[in-house]
Write a protein that binds this DNA or RNA. Structure first.
Lengths: 70, 70
DNA sequence: TTGTGACTTGTAGTCCGTG
DNA sequence: GCACGGACTACAAGTCACA
C-alpha cells in the first residue's frame, strides 16, 4: 500500500530534520493528530496535502519518491 | 498548483500510450468523467487514486514525478 | 471522444481530549 | 513526544445528463 510507504518515508525525513511530529505539523500548518496518522500510514492523503509535507521536508516530489523504499 | 501539473503529465503519458481517456479509464477501473477531471487538473486527487493511474501508465512514482515539468 | 456542472456519499481533515 | 479516540466539518470520490 502506497500510503504506508509514504508514511515511513515522511517519518525518516522528519526525524533527519530533528523535528517532532508536533513541531513539523505546526511548521507546515497541518493538524498534529492528522499528520501523525499520515506518518502511521493510515490515511489516503490528497496530493495537495502531500505537497505541503514534501515542501516542509524541503524536497521535490521527485526526490521524495526516488528515495522511497519499495 | 500541483494537481494541474499532474494532470498535464498524465495526459501526455496517456497519449503516448495511444489510448483515449475512456479506454485508459476502463483499463484502470476508473470512471471516465472522473479521470477527465483529474487530467484537466480540477481534482485534488488522493494518493491511492494517483497510484492507480501511475500503475496504468506503467511507471514508478519516481519516474512519473521526475519527468514532470515545474 | 472529451469537458463540465450538479449532485450524494464516504472519508479526509480538524479540534478536543486521554494514557 | 507519541498513539489513540470521539465528535464534528470540509471536501474527495464517484456517478449522471448533456454539450
Amino acid at each position: 500500500m502506497i500510503q504506508q510507504k509514504i508514511g515511513v518515508r515522511i517519518k525518516e525525513l522528519r526525524i533527519s530534520l530533528g523535528l517532532s511530529q508536533e513541531k513539523f505539523a505546526l511548521k507546515i500548518g497541518m493538524d498534529r493528530t492528522y499528520f501523525a496518522s499520515v506518518e502511521a500510514g493510515k490515511r489516503n492523503i490528497s496530493i495537495n496535502n502531500l505537497e505541503k509535507i514534501i515542501n516542509g521536508l524541503e524536497l521535490s516530489f521527485s526526490d521524495f519518491f526516488s528515495g522511497m523504499e519499495d
